[in-house]
Amino acid sequence: MNPNVGAHVSIAGGVDNAIDNQLEVGGTCGQIFTHSPQVWQDPNIGTEEAELFRTGTADRLDGPWVIHTSYLVNLCTPKADLREKSRESMQRELEAAAALDIPFVNVHLGAHTGAGVEAGLENAASLLDELDVPDGVQILIESDAGSGTKLGGQFEHLATVLESADQPLDVCLDTAHTFAAGYDLSTAAAVDETIAEFDDVVGLDHLRCIHLNDSKHDHGTNKDEHAHIGEGYIGEAGMKRIVTHPDLRDLPFVLETPTEDGRSYAWNIDRVREFRRE
């Protein structure tokens, strides 16, 4: 079976343009920002373009789509004003997902900025419980590279939030982040061991999406810099096992690989399909 693989694509000119952008690189699923991730801004999606997006996706792609929240969102913050901005931003993204028939909204836990790990995770769980999640939409907590006071690098962080929140939550595992956080993925055996640990700590039933990225830095460095598939420190052996692992192979793979060296998403998507054929 061919992998369900796609990329994070632009919605410039209208969210419905994401469909053509995805097809252009050969993707069958994908991810979008509803606005610039560097600013506080509500999604501005018109009724007509939302309808074009919904019908175009149903007719032309396998799906699913994922909305990635703003980089400014910080669920773990102890600061009341940032917490409220993060909550409001998350709520608007959830409403946009419902309007677009997008099943997943992906978010990083953020940083505790000195409050401590336990307090930061408690802040995240309680904020998520304040959200009104529309029917048909699921929040995904993304694994993190774990630099500084950022949380989500350890599987235990993800498990704690999922267990503490009353809100049903699932996980998006980013391969580059997981590797940078210290979980080896560079060999078939290492992938098997890491996925077994994830299952033991978090549970594979909570894993709904993979951000498939190689890493420009070795595991345990906490450096978040993505590389082309099979061209980084995870390498070919690790990437082949990830996309063929029996517990992962049927999940949607969403690429956030770089555009450099004359290669972009299309090259990386072809590489994933090549690894599945071998």
Score class of each variant (00 low, 15 high):
239 M>F: 01
227 A>G: 08
190 A>V: 06
246 P>E: 15
275 F>T: 00
150 K>M: 11
136 G>D: 04
155 F>T: 05
264 S>I: 07
245 H>K: 09
190 A>I: 06
217 H>Y: 12
245 H>A: 04
169 L>R: 07
185 L>M: 07
151 L>K: 08
192 D>K: 15
176 A>M: 15
184 D>G: 09
154 Q>W: 02
268 N>C: 12
206 H>N: 11
204 L>T: 10
141 I>F: 07
219 H>M: 13
135 D>R: 08
177 H>C: 11
206 H>P: 02
261 D>V: 02
234 I>P: 03
231 E>K: 12
181 A>E: 02
147 S>K: 13
158 L>M: 14
226 H>L: 00
170 D>N: 13
251 L>W: 01
223 K>Y: 07
203 G>D: 04
166 D>F: 02
140 L>I: 03
200 D>P: 08
259 T>D: 12
246 P>H: 12
145 A>C: 09
136 G>R: 03
188 A>P: 05
261 D>C: 00
146 G>L: 03
186 S>K: 08
273 R>I: 12
210 I>T: 08
253 F>R: 07
256 E>Y: 11
177 H>D: 03
224 D>E: 08
135 D>W: 05
196 A>K: 07
170 D>Q: 14
205 D>N: 13
233 Y>N: 13
233 Y>R: 14
269 I>C: 06
158 L>E: 01
150 K>V: 08
178 T>Q: 01
175 T>P: 07
147 S>Q: 09
266 A>R: 14
152 G>Q: 04
275 F>D: 01
255 L>T: 02
255 L>W: 06
249 R>D: 13
179 F>R: 05
241 R>D: 10
160 T>C: 03
204 L>C: 10
137 V>A: 04
266 A>N: 08
273 R>F: 08
195 I>A: 09
202 V>D: 05
181 A>N: 04
204 L>E: 09
226 H>N: 07
